[in-house]
Design a protein around this nucleic acid. Structure first.
Length: 229
DNA sequence: GCCCAGGTGGGTA
DNA sequence: TACCCACATGGG
């Protein structure tokens, strides 16, 4: 089985186990971008708190853009890293206005996926994961966002070289999976990573992919060695 | 108190 | 280029 076949086999097993994932309403691209910046390095609960506080405190993105920096930081504090995220969000809002003359990202729909990604990644605070989320979830363009779950799980499943940066993994996995599987595979791999493939816990034996995953063997033998010590 | 959730950018070799 | 670390909050 080559890597492409292996990726499809993983995707198919996840579909059997979890089904085709249903996602909620999609945000407009600018809302999605800000929400995703807030989500960096934090959990969904804290991201939602910060996003709601931001929307509740400032009526429009223009008001956020022109607001006092400290007021924005205070509003998004529950998301963590607020001293970085606040100024970066305001900078993005100002730059969009300066470059486009209006505060919207709807024009990205007319660009290719690569053009839209490169444009988004030109901003400080917008990396490969954040731009891929905006493309996939808001613009309906092909992109495979790689978060820490997906990075870890794809490594354990042997779907990518073990030594590879997260940024390289985006490109590698986009070439490995067929574009029509990006969305369901992304959602289901995260779910797998959250629910089953948790670091340093020997729960991999209950994994629906255990017959495809070499990690559980390695993992199990490591645990056995530790127990013998 | 400690572990867990979980991206980006800047600095260094 | 590849690694290492700072950045911050909240729930269990």
């Amino acid at each position: 089985m080559d890597l492409h076949e292996r990726a499809l086999a993983v995707h198919k097993k996840l579909l059997e186990f979890y089904g085709y994932p249903q996602w909620g309403d999609s945000y407009p691209p600018l809302d999605q971008l800000i929400s995703t910046i807030l989500s960096q390095n934090t959990n969904d609960t804290n991201r939602d708190r910060a996003y709601k506080a931001l929307r509740g405190r400032f009526s429009t993105w223009e008001v956020v853009r022109d607001a006092d920096q400290q007021a924005v930081i205070e509003a998004i504090r529950p998301a963590g890293l607020a001293n970085q995220k606040g100024p970066r969000i305001q900078n993005v809002l100002r730059e969009i206005t300066a470059q486009r003359g209006e505060l919207t990202l709807d024009f990205l729909a007319d660009l290719s996926a690569e053009e839209a990604r490169d444009w988004l990644m030109s901003f400080k605070g917008v990396g490969p994961k954040t731009s891929a989320i905006v493309l996939q979830f808001s613009l309906n363009k092909p992109a495979f966002p790689v978060d820490t779950h997906i990075y870890r799980v794809t490594g354990r499943l042997g779907l990518r070289p073990s030594k590879m940066s997260v940024e390289q993994a985006h490109q590698f996995l986009e070439e490995l999976f067929p574009p029509e599987t990006y969305y369901p595979a992304h959602i289901n791999l995260i779910r797998l990573g959250r629910e089953i493939c948790v670091a340093r816990r020997p729960r991999c034996l209950s994994c629906p992919l255990s017959d495809l995953c070499d990690y559980y063997t390695v993992h199990f033998s490591v645990h056995s060695a530790e127990q013998q010590r």
